[in-house]
Design a binder for these strands. Sequence first.
DNA 1: CTGTATCCTCCAAGATACTG
DNA 2: CAGTATCTTGGAGGATACAG
Lengths: 134, 134
Amino acid sequence: MPTRGEPRVTTSPPPRGDLFDPNCPTRHLLDRIGDKWTAMAIKVLAQAHPDEVRFADLRRRIPGISSKMLSQTLQALVADGLLTRRVEATVPPAVWYGATPLGLSLDQPLAILRNWAESHMAEIDTHRRTSQAT
Amino acid sequence: MPTRGEPRVTTSPPPRGDLFDPNCPTRHLLDRIGDKWTAMAIKVLAQAHPDEVRFADLRRRIPGISSKMLSQTLQALVADGLLTRRVEATVPPAVWYGATPLGLSLDQPLAILRNWAESHMAEIDTHRRTSQAT
DNA sequence: CTGTATCCTCCAAGATACTG
DNA sequence: CAGTATCTTGGAGGATACAG
């Protein structure tokens, strides 16, 4: 996730295709979607699909996230076209978020990663404990 | 991406299976492997497999990484059993890193994510530009 | 060559308070 | 309810220097 960005980006034209170029846009994109909160938001909303979920509800379903971070994360995902945002002009207002097809499509790669983590967690744990002996 | 961790972890027993529990070990694991440098190191070494790669060579193949970060990243991956580390007692010494089967297995989920990013980058870019109009 | 040690900067994100 | 504004800080990570 998130992680600190590259120090300086001097050249301008995005040289697509080379993941190892610090200016590579794919790299930035990966940093973004690798973000913890992003991954969780996508998961919740993809699994809720086709239902939408309200802000406060999302907050409840993503334990530990602050209002600020949730807001930021959602804004970025909406801007990227991964989520929709629908405002109900009631009083008090209600805002519903939902996954777009693009957002749904991201959930699959993320799910594969989650599964990998779950499958191999025990193995990794064992290895750490085993090899940490002096 | 690493990303900053959860603020405090008070309870002890790891409640496996609930990705949304802040103490969930899977969540921590995901944070680690989502790290930018980790993803790149795995990619390089998985693609070099079955060849091993030396420290300085890795450094060259991961533009922008510092000696410090590379060292840290590799240490963590070796501790997790994703990489092997082999020291040649020459002068000056040579250290070879290679992917273990576990490391190789991680490259597949990561490759899927990379592919997703590459496939949908254009779409996301377009959406950002389109929707950023006031 | 392969790292470790040290210092230092900077910003992600938590806490808190407040608004439409 | 759904956020934004402001302040603060921990610690990731770059720079640099050095060691085995």
